[in-house]
Structures are given as structure tokens and as C-alpha cells.
Nucleic acid binder design. Sequence first.
DNA 1: GATGAAAATGTAAACGATTTCATTTCACAA
DNA 2: TTGTGAAATGAAATCGTTTACATTTTCATC
Lengths: 329, 329
Amino acid sequence: MANIQQVAKRAGVSVATVSRVLNGHDKVTAKTKLKVEEAIQHLNYEPSMLGRNLRNSESRIVLILIPTISNPFYFEIIKGIENMALSQNYSILLCETDSKPEKEEIYFDLVRKKMADGIISMDPAVNVETLKELAEHYAIIQCSEYGGGIGIPYVTIDSEEASYRAVKHLIQIGHKKIALMNSDEKFLYARERRMGYERALREHEIPVNGDYIFYTQELGFEQGQMAMKKILRLEDRPTAVFAVSDLLAIGALKEITAAGLHVPNDVAVVGFDKIDFSNMTNPALTTVAQPMYKMGTVAARMLIEKIQGKTVDSVVLGHELVIRESTTG
Amino acid sequence: MANIQQVAKRAGVSVATVSRVLNGHDKVTAKTKLKVEEAIQHLNYEPSMLGRNLRNSESRIVLILIPTISNPFYFEIIKGIENMALSQNYSILLCETDSKPEKEEIYFDLVRKKMADGIISMDPAVNVETLKELAEHYAIIQCSEYGGGIGIPYVTIDSEEASYRAVKHLIQIGHKKIALMNSDEKFLYARERRMGYERALREHEIPVNGDYIFYTQELGFEQGQMAMKKILRLEDRPTAVFAVSDLLAIGALKEITAAGLHVPNDVAVVGFDKIDFSNMTNPALTTVAQPMYKMGTVAARMLIEKIQGKTVDSVVLGHELVIRESTTG
DNA sequence: GATGAAAATGTAAACGATTTCATTTCACAA
DNA sequence: TTGTGAAATGAAATCGTTTACATTTTCATC
């Protein structure tokens, strides 16, 4: 494991010159460049990021904060972030918080200790106070989930509108009794999605029925099953369900089928996110597609600009309703 | 952003003493310790990993190489690795290779440049030559997928035996015409799983029928669908399918249902891996459970020991057949 | 109060790069 | 040949820690 000194020695030049060759900087004579390159080759030299990072006061690592890696919703976003980051010579540290403040704190510490240059937060349960405080000193971007009005740039979609369109689709194919499977309204997106749901109903003069709205603690398959069980027990059973995540919707599918009912003939189902699996279920799931890959690249670009000291503005991206078997048979 | 010098100055001690307090090293008088802690508090000091890492010639980062993040098979393994790593103050860099040598090379470079202290490779398509070469200088562990006999420690399960048991289960519930949906036999695990399949058949005096063995390029849902289409077209149609991944099996499920057939009455299906989704399908999938979380923790522990210069031995963990609706109705 | 060993603290040299500023080399014109 | 300015190169500081070694302090003992 040679270092820059040894390369310099072998090439008969100073370390400064080696560094210049390494970084393609300034002007270096073709002849010296050749000598240096020969030395690098011969010694099998690889510049150490440790030295370089210390000198440059940067780590070239960005943190991605997600609640759990098991939620496929994050896949494409992560890919987007990764590719953009890679193209700018950043690496990504994927951090699962399990929505636990202790784990979150471990990762926040990583940026305080300069192990990371910035954070892309996708955890809806993130501690907003700490995040705000951190944002005063470090580069932070919120992706997909965001606390509004806290001065941290975000990239997201218009949840209210997306939700509105999903419900409108159900109404247009004839449904009037539409249940909403929402997550806890402490999350902004949950409040927005309920508003979209209600707007669609009101617009078609369908009264909003509180009994048709269900809240779940998490957005997983089991929560979807449990909520669906309750829905199926209602005396005036809904003919359609709009779930705010695909996993919830897939749980609903399973439960409806288990009850001997048919999707969409007895109960239609709409999900949200268009995760890969939404296409693998029986029947395939109608869902709202978020431009996840794009969100990732945009978030990464914003973060890198922030790291470079630029000011960046929040971005709202478009979305799309993907109609499949779970509503149209 | 204060540094250790400023803390030392304010506390009226030397940087060495501050460092000692920081690391809970040696003996420091309670009084000086207090002074130092006051200074740290007051200056809001956080030790920089950049300096520390350079000095210690380590990055405290480990690389995880996976072909793609979209395969849920890796979730639990990653969680296992992450938790073990975290407990030892390591962070993990999740690296998607897309099974492309170029991307792989980017990540290999990260360890050559000391940005990472070691690698846990889970990519079956990894370039074994490069890996071997790298293993001479750096800490490397293979997890789940491994090239045998290349001198790199691995943790895995007994694929042949697991496969044998899965097929035996199908035979025991009355099947004789059992198709195998395997991946390319350039992978060791694919060869092993075919051997287990054949052993089970031979043991029950069922001839091995080459027409019943299908190879897929990847282990995804679409490949499962395509292979199943072919299987359904066979004149003497199998009554059961053993797929070497859950995603393949889920593709098969979808295709069987689409053909108007019933699982398991017309065709029984067994998968491999017990990913979360194997429980969410209709019907739920019979599958071979790998102890993924355990594999992760074991791999991480092995890697850390390797980093510390110890010699470590390969490990073979147990597995379990999980019988669900796709074979027993 | 002097002594000496043990305990606490300090000094300064790493770790491996980048970069500012000073110095040398070079090409060319006088 | 000499002088000049530009181009190429080098010397040394710097980034923020840790730690081997040197030095000072402490304190029980005589």
C-alpha cells in the first residue's frame, strides 16, 4: 500500500506534482506526467480517500434516511439517488431508522461527525425539530415525505390531487360507497390524501361517511389485512377501497379473497405508489404512480447543490393513475 | 465547528488529554475530565471522523454488494448485517451492481481507496477473479452466494439439501410430475439445487425428465411468468413446480391463475427464500426459509473479525421448509 | 521535607492527501 | 550571452485526530 510520498520518490518529483497528475490539475509536462504514471503503475498506488477527505473536509458520502428497507416504495427512489450521486462521485449510506429516534440519532451523529456531507430524509416519522436544527449547519433535503414550513427544501408530489384522482376514478366507474384506508394523520401526506378523497366525494355529492375512514399505524400488508377485516364487517359494506399505500391495498386484496369475495366485482381496490409487486398480485392493482426514480435524481441533485453552498428550491413532481384489474376486472 | 485544539485550549489542557477523555482511555483525573467535558459542551464540539479515520487508517465502513435492491431476498440479510455492524460502530454502504462489471468496479475501487474497510458480497454474478485478487489485501466475506474453493470465507445454507427437502415434500403429497424452475447453472447454487431435486426424484424412483427442467436468466417475477407459460404448454403437464426463488414462484402463480387453473389443485408450487411477499400472495406460497437475518449477522461478524486480522472459517446455516397454501390448499 | 514510584498530563510526530506561495526551469528576444 | 516573463516544479503548511514517549504532578513513606 504505497502512499503519495513513495510515488513522488520513485518518480523523482515532489508530492505536489504527483497530486497534480492525480487530479488532472494545472500544467504538468508530458514527460513528468509519464514518469509519475509509471511510478503509480509500478507501485500499484491508489490514492487514499482518508487523506484526501480530511484535507478537503468532506466525506463524499450522503445519508439516505428511510423508515425501513422492506418497503419497496423506496427502491426506485434509492436507485435514482444512487445513480445521480455516483455520477458526482458520492456514495450513499442507506440508513434504516425503524422510525426509532435512537437509530435516527445514530445517523444524525454521522453527519455531525463529518462522516457524511448531507442527508436525504424520506422518513415521515423523522424528528422535525432535530432535523431543523441540523439543517442550520448541514445540507438536508426531504424527499417524498416532508414537513412543510420548516424551511428545508423538499421534492414530492401533490398528494391531495393524486388522491382526488384515484377516488374520482372509482366514482366514475360507478362506486358511491368508497372506504379510505389512511395512515395516521400526524403525517402531512395522510391529511392531504384524506382531503383529496373528500374533495372527490363532495364534488360528486356523495356524503363523507366517517365510518368509511380507517386509520392504520403503519403502511404494511398486515395493517391492510386488519383494516380490511373491519371494513368487511360493516353492515353497509363499501363497494370500493382506496388505500394510501400498495402494501395496505395488497393486504386488502388478500382479505377480500379470503372472505370469498371477488375483486373488483364485490369490492374494487385502489392502491398508491405503484411498487413492483402491485403488478404481481391477483388481480393486478390499480394504483397511483409516483415518479420515484425522478424524485430520487432530483433529490440527489438538490442535495449536492446544497452541499456546494447553493440555495435550492422545493420541487413538486407529477403523478399518474395506473388503471389495472383491481378496479376494472 | 470547533476542533480538538479549541476544546483543549478552553479546558486548559493538551489535545492529548481531550483525546483521552473522548475515548475513555487511560486515567484522567475526575477534575480534568470535568473541565474537558464542560469545554466540549460549551463549544458544541463533535470529533471529526475524518481526522480520526486518517489517523487510524480505517473508514469504519463496510460495503454490501448486491445485484439489485429490488429483490426482497436481501432485506433481512441486510438488516442483520446493519445491526451487527452498528453495534461495532461500523456503517454500511449498500451497493447495487446491477450485475454489471462497471458498477462493481466502482465499488471495488472504494475499498482500494480506503473508503471502505471490507466487503460482504452477495452478488452471484460477481467477478470471482477480481474478488480473489482483492481478498489478498482486503477483508472480504461471501454471503449466501459463493464461489467455492477460492479461499474466501462464506456463510450460506446447504442448497442441495434444502432443494431435496422441498421436492421430497411435493412427492410426499402425491406428486410425480414435478418441474424445476432453475436459474442459470453457471451459479453454484443452481447446480446444487438441481442436484437436490434429482436426488429426491431418484430416491423415490421417479425418472428425471429433462423436459421438466427450465432455466431462467434472472430470478424475477417476469422470468417466472415466462417459464410457467412454457411449462403449461407441455403435452404431459407437470402437476407441481419447484422454483428456486420466490419471485419465480410468484410469477408462476400468476400465470397458472391466468390460465384458469387452480393452485394447488391443478398445479402445486414451491418457492425458495421466504421473502415477505411469499405470504401475501393468493394462495400463500410454500417455500424454503433461509435464516436470513442470522446470515447477515454472522457475515458481519465474520467480516469484522477479518478486518481485525483474525482468520475466520466458513459457516453453513440451517434452513426450514415452510408449508403453506400453494401445496396444501 | 526529601524521596521515589506511580499516576496524570503534555509534546510532537504521525496518518496521506491538497494547495499556497516560493523557487527553479525554460523558451525566446534582445 | 543575458534578461525576461511564463510555465513547471518544489517546500511546507494544513486538515483533525491518536499515541509513543517525555515530562510533570501527586502522594505515601521515611
